[in-house]
């Protein structure tokens, strides 16, 4: 039960962490982005620390799932556009 709860909570936290990491490339204020990312990292570390050891595996699983889903979405969109499978219909 706790594992499930940890998993559900870890999903948005993973998105939040990945967003923080990607924000590092967004600029222009890199220092601000680094501080922000460090805070998010700290928040995640706190979450991990407060999670029972036997449930921590769910945090890792959640993080991996989010990472894979993001990568797959980006790859699918890129493929759809480049292969011409994207076009919007039209009526003249």
């Amino acid at each position: 039960m706790i594992g499930a709860l940890v998993f559900v909570l870890a999903l948005p936290l993973s998105v939040y962490l990945i967003a923080g990491a990607l924000s590092l490339i967004d600029g222009p204020n890199r220092v601000h982005a680094l501080v922000d990312f460090t805070l998010r990292l700290g928040f995640c570390a706190l979450f991990v620390a407060l999670t029972p050891v036997e449930s921590r595996i769910w945090i890792g699983i959640a993080f991996l799932i989010v990472l894979v889903l993001h990568a797959a979405t980006a790859a699918a969109a890129r493929y759809a556009i480049r292969s011409g499978r994207w076009p919007t219909d039209r009526i003249d």
């Binding site: 924000s23 204020n29 799932i65 797959a72």
Partner: peptide, 21 residues
């Protein structure tokens, strides 16, 4: 959100002057 939430978060604080890129 799970598929593209990171981009959503990133768009929350785009510096107005950074769009010059």
């Amino acid at each position: 959100y799970l598929c593209a939430g990171a981009t959503w978060h990133r768009t929350a604080r785009i510096a107005l002057d950074s769009l010059g890129a």
